[in-house]
Design a protein around this nucleic acid. Structure first.
Lengths: 123, 123
DNA sequence: GTTGTCTTCAACCAAGCGGTTGAACAACGT
DNA sequence: ACGTTGTTCAACCGCTTGGTTGAAGACAAC
């Protein structure tokens, strides 16, 4: 699954091992062997994880002799933070308005669900 | 997989349909039926998606007559943004230092990979 | 060339996921 | 009590995923 970029990024970071790799790469490039060292899985498994991160655009690799140093591409993080912030803000805004409504509400013990038009703003 | 909270949240948002649900919930609570309406899948599938979002702590549900209105819990977003920001910042900090090194470097057109013997970032 | 190091490709396997359908549960209206 | 509406449970299916092992590519050193 995960055809779109955002899905790929979220999906890539849904795995603890991959998140740990990203964390470690944030303090410096590393080779596959170096990255694999702390984990108790085969080198091939690590290579697969890196492929996922690469497909998500989170890391890039260059050739350097036999080694293929892995480099973190931090810009992709923006894709996520923008998405998150958008809806977080929207939700908070909604709470603020709800507070206003509650504050300006006279005593009304019939909690009628007079929802204003359910503004469906997708994606 | 995904035993830990962060993995569950990332994993939950890795699906476009679930992201769309979150997006729509950011502008107001909704019932399962309302949520399911735009999608071309069964009601049960939507219910499953909601379960995933609920397990990730992204939504909560209360009973209200027969309906089970779904409510977005935006605080969980912080879990992600904190993680992201931490490593984004670290990576950017690293770039900044790299820039310093490059700036303080004399012209050297032989890109020898000689490990810089205490690469003179002369403090 | 041959050897050695680093990395990936290929085939396979168990488990999980998103989807389905059909039945069941829960709370209302009559 | 009965049917209706809203939602979930249960079993199943195909595909993806994270893991394995074994072979193969790519490059440096001998």
């Amino acid at each position: 699954m995960a055809a779109d970029a955002l899905s790929r990024v979220f999906s890539a970071l849904a795995d603890p091992t991959r998140r740990d790799m990203v964390a470690r790469l944030s303090s410096g490039d590393a080779t596959v062997n170096e990255l694999a060292e702390p984990y108790d899985v085969s080198l091939q498994a690590v290579s697969k994880h890196l492929r996922v991160l690469e497909d998500a655009g989170l890391v890039s690799r260059t050739r350097e002799a036999q080694r293929r140093p892995v480099h973190l591409e931090a810009e992709v993080f923006d894709l996520m933070t923008r998405w998150i912030e958008r809806y977080r803000r929207q939700a908070e805004e909604r709470y603020r308005r709800l507070d206003d409504v509650l504050r300006s509400m006279p005593d009304d013990d019939a909690p009628r669900t007079t929802h204003p038009p359910t503004t469906g703003a997708p994606t």
